[in-house]
Nucleic acid binder design. Structure first.
Length: 468
RNA sequence: GCGCCUCUAGCUCAAUUGGCAGAGCAUCGGACUCUUAAUCCGCAGGUUCUGGGUUCAAGUCCCAGGGGGCGUACCA
């Protein structure tokens, strides 16, 4: 171990070499010497000749080592698959037409402990892939590519928002009051303050405080935490983009949303028409806009109104299979009916608009439709992708909404929002008309990389800790 | 939470109705100067997830526990 180098001067990557020497003829030599580094993925002994495949961040390049020119040839031939090498040599193309580096100097940079996964089948055991992601990333190209795409997508998102003068900020992750979404939080404790804290379930309420403070175009891309079940679409910690745009309403917000997502699809996949789970999704703008009640009417021929008798709505809800709880009011019942009868049939992209006020405690009431709010969710590839609304700006009404939530909480809704008086105080200082948006970044990556499980777009998904 | 499925060598997988636990790759030893999943010869490699039970005999059947996957519920 002591002879392993502390640094290494790398001058080329596999992809760059393959690109720049694509025209080289079989058996040609270039006289050009380069140094590459990566892991040895394959090795083929041929007596006094050894071929190896070296993989770096960009791809693979063949190593050509002959006993004549390769120093310590026997040691080179005895390298293990997975060993991390630095290699210097001349760029050549073999007689059989494979671009190669003829090794004239080499160093082991690190050893692979243990034996390497099967060179053909790789590593398929999901548990091992997630717990030892560093192996998965080497062995499974698709896995590595998904994370590269994820990074490119987040980066493209930042650029796009920056071009539109949105300011990126960071707000607290430790919250004294968990708010901004309907979800159960993780709880923790601050010793010095001797106070209960919660990992944030959304940055929303802090970002709107910043809008009050004059940041009229602001966003955050950050981790949020929800103490709920796990599935192919849910990880307890996940990444959200939230943005707030003053002077805009939810109509502006839908335009922004569809343009952003169409742009990202273009950037990542090269097209606004993508394939998800074997089915086509056309993300080109504009997307369809449909109100929730219209969709219910279309799918199950039920004309529902928020003024309908609560018990009547409850009966309809039960008829379509909703388990109605006592604290469900008309708005919650309409949402439940929508989710039961419509949502699974939507493929999208479509903006489902005008959510009931009762289930939207932070949304501004619809300017023309009492009982509803100016809120939308985008359904893309049959899944909820984001949530946006004209923000509720009235402190008095906000307090009333919080109190209604508190009543639900008392009635047994563990996910109802607690009252946040400090947030109400901020609203008292003036939130201008504002549009707000939340996008689940992980799900957007899944969509654009045609990935069926969130664990394949989260580098280290939450798993049960290993025993002992 | 609940339901179903699954766990065998480092990796990928076999093992007929319950009847000596195997192969390929990797590792180790050997042959080979144009291979590319190289090939060929050889050695070694196991608490069949754990603990009980049934049986002359359990990888296989039963019970309990653990890990993982999928579905469902809550949610993005």
């Amino acid at each position: 171990m002591t002879d392993l180098p502390y640094r290494y001067e790398v001058t080329a990557t596999a992809a760059a070499l393959n690109e720049s020497h694509a025209e080289l003829g079989d058996g040609d030599e270039t006289g050009l010497f380069v140094t590459v580094a990566g892991r040895l993925m394959l090795r083929r002994g041929q007596g006094k000749l050894v071929f190896g495949d070296l993989q770096d961040r960009t791809g693979r390049i063949q190593l050509f080592a002959s006993a004549k020119v390769c120093p310590d040839f026997h040691e080179f031939a005895a390298l293990n698959l997975g060993d991390w090498l630095g290699v210097t040599g001349e760029i050549i193309k073999t007689k059989r037409g494979e671009l190669s580096i003829r090794v004239t100097a080499w160093d082991v940079l690190a050893r692979w402990g243990g034996t390497f996964p099967d060179k053909w089948h790789g590593l398929t055991d999901t548990d091992a892939r997630y717990r030892q992601r560093y192996i998965d990333l080497w062995v499974n190209d698709g896995s590595r590519q998904a994370f590269v795409d994820r990074s490119r997508m987040v980066s493209a998102t930042r650029r796009w928002l920056e071009e539109r003068d949105f300011l990126e900020v960071e707000t607290p992750i430790l919250h004294p009051i968990p708010g901004g979404a309907l979800a159960r939080p993780f709880e923790t404790h601050h010793n010095a303050l001797d106070t209960e804290m919660f990992l944030r379930i959304a940055p929303e309420l802090y970002l709107k405080r910043l809008t009050v403070g004059g940041f009229d175009k602001v966003y955050e891309i950050g981790r949020v935490f929800r103490n709920e079940g796990m599935s192919t679409r849910h990880n307890p910690e996940f990444t959200m983009l939230e943005l707030y745009w003053a002077y805009a309403d939810y109509h502006d917000g839908m335009e922004l949303t569809e343009q952003l997502i169409a742009h990202l699809a273009e950037q990542i996949t090269g097209s606004t028409t993508i394939t998800y789970d074997g089915r086509e999704v056309d993300l080109s703008t504009p997307w369809e806009r449909r109100t929730m009640t219209d969709l219910i009417s279309e799918h199950v021929q039920l004309d529902l109104s928020i003024e309908m008798d609560r018990d009547e709505l409850a009966k309809i809800a039960e008829d379509v299979g909703v388990q109605v709880k006592g604290y469900y009011g008309p708005g919650k019942l309409i949402l439940e009916i929508y989710e039961k009868t419509v949502e699974a049939h939507l493929w999208g992209p479509v903006f489902v608009t005008d959510y009931p006020k009762e289930v939207s405690p932070l949304s501004r009431v619809h300017r023309d439709k009492p009982g509803f709010t100016e809120r939308f969710e985008a359904i893309v590839a049959g899944r909820e992708l984001c949530n946006g609304f004209s923000e509720l700006i009235d402190p008095v009404e906000q307090l009333a909404r919080f109190e209604a939530q508190a009543a639900d909480r008392d009635a047994g809704d563990a996910e109802a929002m607690p009252i946040d008086r400090d947030y109400v105080r901020a609203l008292e200082h003036g939130l201008p008309p504002t549009f707000g948006l939340g996008i689940g970044i992980d799900r957007l990556v899944m969509l654009l990389t045609d990935t069926q499980t969130i664990r394949d777009v989260v580098l280290f998904p939450t798993l049960r800790p290993e025993q002992e």
